[in-house]
Write a protein that binds this DNA or RNA. Structure first.
Lengths: 213, 213
DNA sequence: TAGATTGTTAATCGATTAACAATC
DNA sequence: TAGATTGTTAATCGATTAACAATC
């Protein structure tokens, strides 16, 4: 099981697993690379390469065993002991994320939310309890949290990130539109909604220009 | 102004512009490539290459003119006539996105929301009016909408995408965890929150394994 | 066997990086 | 001029694609 799997490959494996789970609930036992690849929007060769990378082997006559491949990917992606995660910032976006991930996956759950607004403290939103931002560091250390989601305003994001890193967090999903400065051993996934929408608008427009040309 | 600018380059240009606007409000007139690059989290050489690509030229003695470069990027990214956008799906995530983009940029605004739940129709949420999903196609055609955001449940996403494409939409920001099938001239930006969080968890864990090794 | 698959290697493509000349 | 920048080209790196051998 190689440690140097690329970010893109990991993302695709996550996608394959979800599609395999759907097939599994539909009582499909085997799937060919091109069938799964079509659902995932990738080429069959790329999918085979990804699956090969985690050491799983298909059958030339039957294709891939749906249940076994899903388990194999889960074994690759998931910590068998589970990975609790926290979210900091219970605004509109934060609450939407809490709703999105509330009890979604047993091995990867949002277990606590934090906000500096005392009115939100001790409320339970989408089954996740909200704590005071003052208790963030203590909570992370005591519960050995390694994964966090940042949905605070941009002005507070770096400060929150510093606390997270200091407390031992090693992976951050960041919605604040700022490049967070963290040590190289901390993984950051930036989700910049403004940039994404601007990209969509740009390419939607380019398309128009092409047609007119 | 080349049409074949890569997706990544467009995203970075969007980021540069935001940082330039911040500098502008702080009354900074000139900025060197390495200063701006540090804020953006890229190398100075890459930033210079990106800026070169849109035909803007800096000064070896002063660096880049903050206001002029921001205008130059805006001219590259934005439609001078403005690009209205719509959102389909007024659930938790949809409302958060509406809050996020409500009146953010004059040239790129969410002008309408759509939902199949009649209880939401005609309500105004974060300054955006909610319409019936039945009127989606008519609205898009009449208002020449080219940009849309999909925040409906996964089961409805492809159906919505089909309506959007049929009505003339050319760019879609898709939050539903499904690979949408659209013509090649329609740009799709997939934002899969589950995959993103799973990636973060994976690399947070890898880090741990490395340290232990 | 024949056929369609899978695993694997070689070729291609593109983006990034590094190095250098041009400029104020 | 000297120095630090910018614009530009060449080298590198990695991912993707294409081609082919191995397998059931």
């Amino acid at each position: 099981m190689p440690l140097n799997t690329s970010e893109k490959t990991v993302g695709r494996l996550s996608l394959y697993r979800r599609l395999l789970q759907e097939l599994s609930t539909a009582s499909v036992s085997y799937v060919y690379s091109h069938q799964l690849a079509t659902k995932a929007g990738v080429t069959a060769a790329k999918l085979r390469r990804d699956i090969m990378a985690i050491g799983y082997t298909g059958s030339p006559s039957k294709g891939y065993d749906v249940v076994k491949l899903a388990e194999s990917i889960a074994h690759f992606l998931e910590d068998p002991e589970g990975q609790p995660a926290v979210i900091i910032g219970v605004g509109n976006l934060g609450r939407a994320i809490m709703s999105y991930f509330g009890g979604r996956r047993p091995k990867l759950q949002l277990v606590a939310a934090f906000d500096s607004d005392e009115k939100k403290v001790n409320r339970v939103i989408h089954n996740i309890r909200c704590f005071s931002a003052d208790s963030l560091e203590e909570y992370i250390v005591q519960n050995s949290i390694k994964v966090a989601v940042i949905t605070v305003p941009v002005t507070q994001a770096q400060n929150v990130a510093d606390i997270l890193v200091r407390s031992g967090v090693k992976g951050i999903m960041n919605f604040a539109p700022i490049h967070l400065r963290v040590p190289s051993d901390v993984f950051i996934e930036d989700i910049d909604l403004a940039i994404s929408l601007e990209k969509v608008a740009y390419f939607a427009r380019q398309n128009k220009q092409k047609k007119e040309a």
